[in-house]
Each structure stands twice: as structure tokens, then as C-alpha cells.
Simulated assay, not measured.
Amino acid sequence: MGWKEMLREIEIPPLWLAIFALAGWGVGRVLPVALPFGRELGLGLVAIGLALMGAAALQMVLRHTTFIPRRDPQALVTSGAFALSRNPIYLGDAFVLAGLLLIWQAALGLWLVPAFMVFITRRYIRAEEAMIGAHFGPAYAAYRARTRRWL
């Protein structure tokens, strides 16, 4: 495996979540802005995000399909967490990021959440949607018509 392939394997969404979170942590350290009940709300958002990610990953494992980006899907999962969003793991990532920013008093960094969502859409979601569409055709088109990409 060449270095490009190795980089492709480690360049995964959790890495980008960590990078965006680190940027937010830095904002909170340099320009702290605490919101009323920010810590409590932040903890709640992190918990919701982790629960959503866990539920979606479990659903995919139970359907014997991958949750690793750039891998061929074996099944189209449309129920449970996937009835809420076509990308519940990425949505969970966004909740976790927002929660961490609130916990770290980085309210001025909340712009990182939509920036993360745009980045993930361009870097991963569009290609994943094309791959899923190629594998599952009309079934995916129907699912896509009734379920939003994010929320």
C-alpha cells in the first residue's frame, strides 16, 4: 500500500471532527464566552450526538453493511436513526462538536459547526450518496426523497 492509500485510510471523518473541535477549543481558550446553561446544554448535545452515532453504527452492523467512508455498502438502511437523517453519524458528529464548544465556553466558535457540516458534505457525503445511489438505484432515490440529508 502506497502513502496515498495509507493517507486515504486514516483521513476519516473522526479525524476532521477532532480538528474542528481542536480549533473550537482554541477559540474557547483565547476568547472564552460562556452562555447561560452552556455546560449543561453542551453535555446534553454531546450525549445526544454519541447516542445517535452509536445507534446508527449499530444498525449498520446489524444489517451487515459498512459505516466506514469510501467502502461499498452491502445494505440500504432507512429505518431507526436513518429515518431521521440520511447521515445520522455525521449529524451526531455535529451535535458532539456543538456540545464541546458550549462546554469549552467557545460560543464564538459555534460557526465551526456549520463549517464542519459543509466540509463533511463536500468531502464525504456527496461521494457516498453517489455510491449508494449506484448500488441501490430507485430504492435509494425514494429514501432520498423522503429523508433529509442532515435533519
Rank of each mutant, 00 (worst) to 15 (best):
A127H: 05
P14M: 08
F95L: 15
V96G: 00
A47H: 00
R149I: 01
I132Y: 07
P73K: 08
A47R: 04
G26P: 00
L76Q: 09
P32C: 12
F119I: 06
Y90E: 07
L31V: 05
G24Q: 04
W150N: 03
G109N: 01
L41W: 12
L112T: 01
I120L: 07
Q105H: 14
E9L: 15
G137P: 00
R8T: 11
R70Y: 14
A47K: 02
V118G: 03
G2I: 05
E5S: 14
F82H: 05
V61P: 00
L100A: 13
A83D: 09
I89W: 10
E129F: 12
I103C: 13
R123K: 14
V61R: 08
A106I: 02
G133N: 11
A115E: 02
M6A: 15
A130G: 11
F116G: 01
G99R: 03
P138H: 11
E40G: 06
T65P: 12
A34S: 05
A57T: 07
L76G: 06
L84M: 13
T66I: 09
G28E: 10
E40N: 01
L50I: 06
R86Y: 06
A106C: 09
T65D: 11
M60L: 15
R123Q: 13
R146L: 00
I89Q: 10
V96H: 01
A57Y: 02
L31C: 07
R144G: 02
V77C: 08
E11T: 15
I120T: 13
R39V: 13
G44S: 13
Y143Q: 06
T66E: 13
T121L: 06
L102C: 10
A83L: 04
L41G: 09
A34F: 04
L45I: 08
I48N: 05
Y143I: 06
Q105E: 15
A51N: 06
H135R: 15
T66Q: 12
G133W: 08
M131C: 04
G24I: 03
V113P: 01
L112Q: 03
L17T: 00
L52M: 12
P32F: 02
L91M: 13
A21H: 09
L97M: 08
T65Y: 11
W150K: 02
R70E: 10
T121K: 00
L52Y: 04
I103F: 07
L43N: 07
W104R: 01
P114T: 00
G38H: 07
L22R: 04
E9V: 03
G38C: 07
F67G: 04
R39W: 14
F20Q: 06
V61F: 08
P114M: 02
A81C: 12
V30W: 14
G38M: 03
G24F: 07
A94V: 08
P88Y: 03
L45H: 05
G137F: 00
G2S: 14
L22E: 07
A23R: 03
T121N: 11
P36V: 10
